[in-house]
Amino acid sequence: MKDLFAVVMLLGIYSLLSASFFVAMDAVDVAFTEAAVGAGISTLLMLVVITITGRSEKTTRHKPLLALLVVVFTGSMLIYGTFDMPYFGIADAPIHSHVAPRYIQESMKEVGIPNIVTSVLASYRAFDTFGEVVVIFTAGIGVMALLSVGRRPEENEKTTAIDDSMHEQYLVIRIVTKMLIPFILLYALYVQFHGDFGPGGGFQAGVIFAAAIILYTMLFGLTTARKVINQSFIQFIAAAGVLLYGCVGIVSMLNGANFFDYNALASDPVAGQHLGILLIEWGVGCTVASVMIMIFFNFAERREMQQNNEKINNIEGDSL
């Protein structure tokens, strides 16, 4: 299939489908993340990239037989490997005998949060999660370094006129979006704070929040969205999120415990855990949301610049 647009569509379908698998296998938090990240943000980012680079795949001269062979071989080895796997949900599988019993039996006593996934993610494995957040932050910096256009030249009249004419056709959808955006933002906050009790947490909340802003940007134009959220503010928030996360670890060290040992944050260990998890979820949410918005803004800015240049060239060519 050479049509990249169709590939992105099918990828969106696949993402929705795989999230249904996760729901069917009781991995609610994973399904949540897949829904928000896989089906939502990554589809949007890929679409923007396609509009910049072009829709059809570059044709290759030779047939990639060797690659096919390697893929078939690796795939068959992987399938062969699955025969040794324990059955789904079997009780004495290795994964259930190592640390899982401790999480299941002790986490309520030690962390005091009903959702075990959150307590593992944010408390037992806080250092891993810190790594993930730093990775996201680094990705944002990378995109910014490679793609950011720099200070835009003053908006000349031609480009703003093009902007206005482009947005007149979206009347109905703009009104519906205006109705929906507050709800989406509120829902993102609900996901952020409800992560202790049900599926959710900082990652998902950040992505949903970013999705709302991206929706606004798509329909009202980049310049309007930049007036609401400017670049330096997002950069500040992205860094502040990582900093907040790290500071929680430092403070727990200063109080005489290990890095990310939340027990030392308050006089009561369980209260300390609550406080620590709340703070680091905030850090994660801020960083993820602002990095996603930053990446999208940079892509969209590139695209808009390219398009405006083309249009201005066309107009000038016509007038000549």
């Binding site: 056709q169 979206y170 109905v172 959808i173 519906v176 109705m179 929906l180």
Partner: peptide, 13 residues
């Protein structure tokens, strides 16, 4: 109820 008709409208347009 809000989203379905809106997407249909935008798609057709």
């Amino acid at each position: 109820l809000l989203i379905g008709p809106t997407t249909s409208h935008v798609l057709a347009k």
